[in-house]
């Protein structure tokens, strides 16, 4: 139960940090911001690795491997697209 309280605290604090960071992003950059945060949500990769590695039964392994593949596509593709978008906003000299 103690664990749960630690996690809830982290959750709440992270929400505040998120709020503070995101409200400072200018609206001009909202599309790259969304693309970036979408790439970050590929962090479920960690969950996928844990699930696949647990080796509970064949179904967990199949689903786990599938999630690793999809989550990796999400992370790599997401950051590539974000980078391409941000490059458009870079100052040209």
């Amino acid at each position: 139960m103690e664990n749960l309280f630690i996690f809830l605290t982290i959750f709440t604090l992270a929400m505040f940090v998120g709020f503070e960071i995101i409200t400072k992003v200018p609206p001009t950059l909202h599309t790259p911001l969304m693309s970036g945060s979408n790439a970050i949500s590929g962090i479920t990769l960690i969950g996928a690795v844990v699930a696949a590695g647990a080796g509970e039964n064949i179904l967990t392994i199949i689903l786990g491997v599938l999630s690793i593949i999809v989550a990796t596509i999400n992370v790599v593709g997401g950051f590539l697209v974000t980078n391409r978008m941000l490059a458009m906003f870079r100052k040209k000299d």
């Binding site: 992270a14 940090v17 998120g18 995101i22 911001l33 945060s37 699930a51």
Partner: peptide, 16 residues
């Protein structure tokens, strides 16, 4: 999964 990294990044994305 009792995984803090997931909780932190997840809530950052959720908040944004």
């Amino acid at each position: 999964l009792n995984n803090t990294v997931l909780v932190i990044t997840g809530s950052l994305v959720g908040a944004s």
